[in-house]
């Protein structure tokens, strides 16, 4: 062993041979079958695949979250801490301190009754025990950091007063509040229009550089992944079928599934209906 410190530096998230089974006996289904993935500090890794290919499951497993009654084997290391088989406390600590997650539909993921400021401040007040005033100052600078205009007034608003794009920025600000090293984005731009999508991706890339964040970006949009990620993993039926540098995967796909996925993209179709390609488990 070269010491855990070096490993921490090398990969904030290291998933190795991850298997996830649900059900028992005849109804048993293997959802993930030997998934391997790593993400280093300052790196954006794309996880691409169809609905049901296991990309969201992989992401959830990265914070020790598995469906009820599921059996998880293999290894998930977040900042050097093994999560598979870890106790509840250890998992909670990772979720509070090391990893943060943003979601597809920001509106559904915020408490509609909570003001923006209170929502973003929550992590600081909870995990660091900061006072309301101290957290409020930090909230303003966080909202400013994610590019929201007039953060002081914004903090007093309610979620329904904000647009989807603004709310996604608020979610990012909230995720960043506890200075995580790993940001998990689950289809974080899918619900947004193309312009906003580009803005959010730009923001994520900037944060990656400024904060040295490791970002795992789950999407079904191969185009977007190729444009914004450093490396891409392509998943099909619970298996990573292809991985490599984003441009390589995009321009010289090796696995037939990746080729099919690329062919199914509307931009590469000539007015034909996209063909379903059977990637769900």
């Amino acid at each position: 062993m070269s010491g855990s410190n070096q490993q921490v530096d090398a990969a904030v998230l290291a998933i190795d041979d991850l298997r996830l089974d649900v059900g028992a006996g005849e109804t048993a289904v293997r959802i993930l079958d030997g998934v391997g993935l790593s993400c280093a500090a300052g790196e954006i890794v794309g996880l691409v695949g169809e609905s049901g290919s296991g990309k969201s499951m992989t992401l959830r497993a990265a914070v020790g979250l598995a469906p009820k009654g599921a059996r998880l084997t293999g290894s998930v290391r977040v900042a050097g801490r093994e999560l598979v088989g870890a106790g509840r406390r250890e998992v909670l600590r990772v979720r509070r301190e090391v990893a943060a997650m943003i979601f597809q539909d920001p509106r559904a993921h915020v408490n509609p009754y909570q003001r923006i400021g209170a929502f973003v401040a929550d992590g600081l007040r909870r995990t660091r025990g900061w006072s309301r005033t101290r957290a409020a100052q930090q909230v303003v600078s966080l909202l400013d950091e994610v590019g929201l205009p007039d953060p002081e007034t914004l903090a007093d608003r309610y979620p329904h007063e904000l647009s989807g794009g603004m709310l996604q920025r608020v979610m990012i600000a909230s995720a960043l509040s506890t200075e995580p090293r790993l940001l998990l984005a689950d289809e974080a731009t899918t619900a947004l229009d193309v312009t906003t999508q580009a803005e959010i991706m730009g923001l994520l890339r900037r944060l990656r550089e400024e904060r040295g964040l490791a970002i795992v970006f789950v999407t079904h949009d191969l185009d977007l992944a190729a444009a914004s990620c450093d490396r891409i993993h392509v998943m099909q039926s619970g298996v990573v079928v292809e991985q490599g540098r984003a441009l390589d995967v995009f321009e010289r796909p090796e696995h037939p599934y990746t080729r099919k996925l690329l062919d199914a993209m509307p931009s590469r179709l000539d007015a034909e209906a996209p063909t379903p390609i059977g990637g769900a488990a």
Binding site: P112, Y113, G147, P159, H160, E161, S163
Partner: peptide, 13 residues
């Protein structure tokens, strides 16, 4: 960035 809108229905009851 545009000003905040109230396009969605109010969730305040």
């Amino acid at each position: 960035m545009t000003l905040p809108t109230t396009e969605t229905r109010s969730t305040h009851l």
